[in-house]
């Protein structure tokens, strides 16, 4: 199936001379949740802004549902809902009116029954006649989401949806995203909370310094880049790691012996290590394994990217 969003060689150099995007290629499949992960200033927001029409790209093409965002912007944009990073809503307007306004902007006929459904799903229905400036920060963010959903988009961009949001609301937000996905909405979210990407995403794109370093299915990514550690609590602390074990990637800290191995390697070496430990006379009282988190994966990727850059 053709991707719902296809980004090819997307470039953006601002008038100041700063290049925010160095040719990003990315295909987004219909119905998936894609997380764009990267540090501040990596180009996440610029990518989203270019797709949504807030920023004019200086190179490359983007199609949404097959419609080019430059030549066929009406068709392209009407498929997209955008929740920006900053909370920007009309302060003196009532919630319902704000949402109706958004729907109208996207050229959709008034449909209060649909908007009621949206507001209820965001627990905003009771607040429909409140003014936006009377709402709490979390509520305002929900209003932004309601606005983005008001015109029944096929694709939803969430730019740092949970930045500065408390734990409960974050959980609600995740729940909402899952429900939307169940309705067939494609979701692209940016975040620098790795746990968020880990929790939500089907695929993860890592972006840094305007370059997409990698896009991979989350599970595969965790697996392929995931390293595992075996931690052994030794019964007796040796003076040093015995010479017979020099071939292993071992670290000794107090009574803890840590063995790091690659889960995807043909042989992890665990069985052999156990045998060698026994013959070296080392006894252990406990053992545990630890999977590296996406955070480690991410940091090592960004590190790699930086090293490559330094080498060039």
């Amino acid at each position: 199936m053709a991707p719902i969003i296809s980004i090819k060689g997307l470039q953006k150099t601002y008038d100041s001379g700063h290049t925010a995007l160095h040719g990003v290629d990315l295909d987004i499949e219909e119905g998936e949740i894609l997380a764009l992960l990267g540090p501040n200033g990596a180009g996440k927001t610029t990518t989203i802004s270019a797709v949504c029409g807030l920023v004019t790209p200086t190179g490359g093409t983007v199609t949404v549902g097959g419609h080019d965002i430059a030549t066929d912007y009406r068709a392209a944009r009407s498929m997209i809902g955008l929740v920006p990073q900053e909370i920007s809503i009309e302060p003196f307007e009532k919630v319902m009116n704000t949402v109706r306004f958004s729907r109208g902007l996207f050229g959709k006929k008034r449909d209060d029954a649909y908007l009621e459904k949206v507001l209820r799903s965001l627990s905003l229905w009771d607040k429909r006649d409140s003014r936006n400036n009377e709402l709490s920060g979390g509520m305002k963010r929900r209003v932004l989401i309601a606005k983005a959903l008001s015109h029944e988009p096929r694709v939803l961009f969430l730019d740092e949806p949970t930045a500065g949001v408390d734990v409960n609301l974050r959980k609600d937000m995740w729940q909402l995203v899952r429900e939307l996905r169940a309705d067939g909405v494609t979701i692209i979210l940016t975040t620098h909370y790795i746990e968020e990407a880990e929790e939500m995403a089907d695929r993860i794109g890592v972006i840094d310094k305007g370059r997409l370093l990698l896009v991979e299915e989350k599970d595969k990514l965790m697996k392929s880049l995931g390293r595992k550690q075996l931690v052994l609590e030794l019964a007796k602390v040796p003076d040093a790691i015995p010479a017979s074990l020099a071939g292993y990637e071992l670290e000794l800290e107090g009574n803890r012996l840590t063995y790091t191995f690659d889960t995807t390697a043909e042989s992890t070496g665990v069985t052999r290590l156990m045998a060698d430990l026994a013959s070296a006379g080392l006894k252990f009282t406990d053992l545990s394994t630890r999977q590296s988190s996406l955070e480690d994966v991410f940091l090592s990727l960004v590190d790699e990217g930086q090293q490559k850059e330094a080498a060039q």
């Binding site: 807030l54 009406r74 944009r77 920007s88 009309e90 302060p91 902007l105």
Partner: peptide
């Protein structure tokens, strides 16, 4: 005002000329 409070993003992202 939309420029000032940031809501202009919505105008720019809407399918409007």
């Amino acid at each position: 005002f939309p420029k000032f409070i940031g809501t202009i993003f919505e105008l720019l992202s809407a399918p409007m000329s």
